[in-house]
């Protein structure tokens, strides 16, 4: 029979090993999520068609993830999708002339929001929490694209 001190040490090592596994799963395997750490603010944008955009899809500026899609709703009056962007407080002061478009990573990959900062000069405000981004480009829907292509061929 082992003495109880040795048992306690081994149980301690077991628990530490398990916590190390949890830490590894949390840090290395799972995404930390931009909303999880630090302050964020919200921007809104209206699209005609959001395609396959999902809640938690990334918002990127030039490929750098600056936030995530927080919510997707339908406007009650004109029935267009309204996307709420949750942006990290580290990245603020985008000019009012900025535009967002729904892009696809790769040919068949996940869809994400590309935020394109506009020019800022005198008299242009910066976007504040809750503001709507006016300039938006909707998702490319492959079926529509093929439809347009066939239509334009028929006209030739």
């Amino acid at each position: 029979m082992m003495n109880s001190r040795k048992v306690e040490i081994l149980v301690g090592l077991f628990v530490v090993l398990a916590l190390a596994s949890l830490a590894m799963l949390a840090m290395k395997v799972a995404n930390q999520g931009i909303s999880g750490n630090g302050e964020t603010y919200e921007l809104k944008a209206k699209f005609d068609n959001i395609g396959g955009l999902k809640v938690r899809s990334p918002v990127k500026v030039g490929g750098v993830v600056v936030g995530r899609v927080g919510a997707i709703d339908l406007d009650a009056k004109d029935f267009t999708p309204v996307v709420t962007l949750v942006i990290s407080e580290n990245y603020k002061g985008f000019p009012e002339t900025s535009s967002v478009s729904i892009l696809t990573s790769g040919l068949l990959g996940e869809q994400y929001l590309g935020l394109q900062p506009g020019f800022s000069f005198e008299g242009i405000d910066t976007l504040k929490a809750g503001d709507f981004i006016e300039d938006t480009k909707s998702a490319l829907v492959l079926e529509d694209l093929i439809g347009q292509f066939l239509f334009s061929r028929n006209n030739d």
């Binding site: 949890l22 799963l25 395997v29 799972a30 995404n31 999520g33 938690r56």
Partner: peptide, 15 residues
């Protein structure tokens, strides 16, 4: 291997 995994795995939902 690691970065695509991090993009797909969510701490609350999966772990």
């Amino acid at each position: 291997y690691w970065s695509v995994m991090q993009a797909a795995v969510d701490f609350d939902d999966d772990v």
